[in-house]
Design a protein around this nucleic acid. Structure first.
Lengths: 371, 371
DNA sequence: TGGGCGATTGGTAGCGCTAACATCTGTGCC
DNA sequence: GGCACAGATGTTAGCGCTACCAATCGCCCA
């Protein structure tokens, strides 16, 4: 059988027949720019080979300045945009990093994702996000799968629960991966804040103010942050020889804080409470006040996070500030490192900062000039 | 430039050199499957052609069930993942939609982005996000460019200011684009909430309660939402024949609300305030209270948005609820439509809902049992 | 003055997938 | 029984870019 050799597409014979009759340099006719220009078009316009265009666009050093100039002008003139799919296919790198995040309106999570995103863009990466409604192996796995399917170059997992990551490491083989938040003991490079130090700081503040002991409204049991803050609280109590009241659990929402506040109000001896986040502290304070306990005169309250609204609660909330964006930035830095070197060192935990406001007072002191 | 460097993470570096002498022909060692399997591999494993594998994976109808089964099993067995860059290159569709959003911690924006994301994933699309720090032509343009460079199939712009979109339409040629939030008059398909109706509702509520007039703390002038709420307030006032007090401007933050509250406190005749969002309302209330004005006994306050914390402000805030996630979902629906049909109809604005709580009282009524 | 070296540039061959055809079954019908 | 026809599968040729190597050029030193 005769194999008729199909027309070898000689360079210059370009694909589009229409383009042939369109002399270069002509004013862009309305019909002309049907499809967006290709690297070949730029090359032709600049009088160089496609390869040279590629080199210019990739910042390759050995291109003569004037050649580079010509190419850049052609790029400008044709409004050329490199096709990233083709680039990804050829280089096996997508210039995209994936973010797996817990889908919540919690300030901290959102701010952290923001930090990652900005750092990524600053480093020249695109960002693809997948949020999960529940934090468990399966959902995180699916999310990371979908990101890996997009061939991301790296993965930042913003998760409250590091224990859940074991399996993820296996699913996302070949992709650099770091964790933001969570405990730094996950076996993966992690950027985290020292929750325990924060919890200790909050508790000590209340103890120093003369309170015999400090109650604690904790977050969900399965969050590393909850755990850290609780442990910090316990250790500060132990150091001071104070008795440890029963822990009350919330779910981070103001509503759960309100419930916790109602329960606290039933105990006549409560004078100081460390609440594991600001939203819950808001609820706690409302419940306390509605139960006839003044804040801070009767009960002092310390929150955690320092969300932007905390300074405008009534009373303004004493709290522990976390820099979530910084956390995001750090994890991105870690990821860049991991992608380049394969290194796996976690960065040292950030120490949260104490922010004194008006929701705390000395024990037993019916404040006079506090408000 | 360096090629893939299979950095063995094991501490014992000596082991890696030994691995080089790994003789060929040995049983599939753990080292073997260096690269991920290709469609060709699946095809071979299933005893069919690559094209058939492709068809199965794309849900093409004309594949015999048993063939499909064989292929799926092979896919499973080899843990095959389709390379999306290659797919994108071949199909010219990336299965990714881009989201351009204003980079803020504002609850509404974040919730809206979430809504988009979930709807997108439900529809089988990846989501790539670019946030901008400032809302102007240039920054939005850059963000959308970077998304378009990723060859997204569609674009959702979550913007507070629709006027800024003119230029965007030209830059993102060939990409379907819709707007979430903003005014519905941008010339682009838009999913929005009826801010004006919300503002009117809030103002009327206060008027009905017997207040002679209602003051307004507005958002930034250049946000469509601010404008709509303000117009609603004005129209309700006009309808009632009430005089229109001077507008006080904030920037959405609680801090700016606090400043506004301080100013309001200087006017002895203020008995009712409609604040353009809940965060500012929080600040307003604190300033009012610190200035010796009780809420709601002396001054009634209505917010806007119904953020999750609003119910736990002190007093719990009467407000206008917006369903931001629904907004996101709607804009995604619009986008899918636009991508399929090229249609450009905006969806009807959602009407925000009134939520009565304790921050409002009848004019002049020194409430007894309100708390 | 010739060979060699580095800096520049070009050609070729894919990256992994799918659209569009070509081919091969099996079926129903006259 | 042969032919049209549809369903199931295979073959070919790119999608737009870059890695790799080859070719070319200028310039230096012996």
């Amino acid at each position: 059988m005769e194999v008729d050799q199909p027309q070898v597409s000689a360079p210059g014979t370009g694909a589009s027949t229409a383009a042939i009759e369109n002399p270069p340099g002509a004013a862009p006719s309305p019909e002309a720019a049907r499809t967006s220009p290709l690297m070949t078009d730029v090359a032709r316009a600049a009088g160089v080979s496609p390869m040279t265009v590629s080199r210019v666009l990739n910042g390759h050093p050995s291109v003569r300045p004037e050649t580079r100039q010509k190419v850049l002008e052609a790029v400008e003139r044709l409004e050329y945009r490199r096709n990233s799919a083709a680039r990804t296919l050829a280089t096996r790198r997508s210039q995209t990093i994936g973010v797996v995040a817990f889908d919540s309106t919690f300030y901290g999570q959102a701010a952290c994702v923001r930090g990652v995103e900005h750092a990524a863009r600053a480093a020249g990466y695109f960002v693809s996000i997948a949020t999960v409604k529940e934090v468990n192996e399966r959902s995180l796995g699916e999310a990371s799968d979908s990101l890996v399917a997009q061939s991301v170059d790296g993965l930042v997992v913003v998760t409250p629960r590091a224990s859940v990551l074991e399996e993820l490491r296996e699913r996302a083989v070949g992709v650099a991966m770091v964790v933001a938040g969570g405990s730094p003991h996950s076996g993966l490079p992690t950027a985290s804040a020292d929750q325990e130090a924060g919890g200790r700081r909050a508790t000590r503040h209340l103890l120093f103010r003369g309170h015999e002991t400090v109650w604690h409204v904790a977050g969900p049991e399965d969050w590393d942050d909850s755990h850290g803050r609780l442990v910090g609280w316990q250790s500060a109590l132990a150091d001071a020889g104070a008795i440890e009241p029963r822990v009350i659990r919330g779910d981070w929402t103001a509503a759960s804080g309100y419930q916790a506040g109602l329960e606290l109000a039933r105990h006549r001896d409560v004078t100081a409470v460390f609440v594991a986040n600001d939203q819950m502290a808001l609820g706690v304070m409302l419940a306390l006040k509605q139960s006839g306990r003044r804040v801070p005169e009767d009960v002092s309250v310390v929150g955690f996070d320092d969300i932007p609204e905390a300074a405008f609660f009534d009373p303004p909330l004493t709290t522990i500030r976390q820099d979530f964006e910084e956390l995001g930035r750090r994890s991105m830095r870690l990821l860049l490192q991991a992608m380049e070197t394969g290194s796996v060192a976690s960065s040292a935990p950030v120490i949260p900062e104490f922010v004194g406001r008006l929701s705390t007072a000395d024990a037993g002191a019916v404040a006079n000039g506090l408000r």
